[in-house]
Amino acid sequence: MSASIYRLVYYSRNHVALDEVAFAAEVDDILAKSRANNVRDGITGALMFNAGCFAQVLEGPLDVVEAAFERIQQDERHGEVSLLTLEPIERRSFPNWAMGFVGMSDETASRFAGVAAASGFDPAHFDGNDLHTILRNLALEEERQAA
């Protein structure tokens, strides 16, 4: 029997209050490191973020997903982590690691467009998936409150 693949989705509040340049650098950093960790662990997924929050989907074998989530929990750059789902799945929704910016302001969106495009984030992966809608709405709500 092949090991089951699990999907974990969480949503958290951003604790790093930085100016945009520093924030972009921070996000670059997070992306680079999670890519390296995730390639090593056989994890795929997607990270969405904006000034207010992070929302992440992790897909992979249960033990590595748990270990990745534990590393994420110990990170001081965010807090109030809500675990939205943890469940076995038939197939991965994100066969490649992806990342996208979900924000309301066009200016910020364009700043992060490069990062998002380079990561191969394709919103189509989310289409028809309630998760996408939920995460997106949460993210927008968070940005509204942070503004």
Partner: peptide, 18 residues
């Protein structure tokens, strides 16, 4: 750094790969 085990990540501050 291309790998850090959990204790290393914990001791040196989270995402240190890279």
């Amino acid at each position: 750094l291309i790998y850090a085990n959990a204790t290393a990540a914990g001791s040196f501050g989270g995402w240190i790969v890279g």
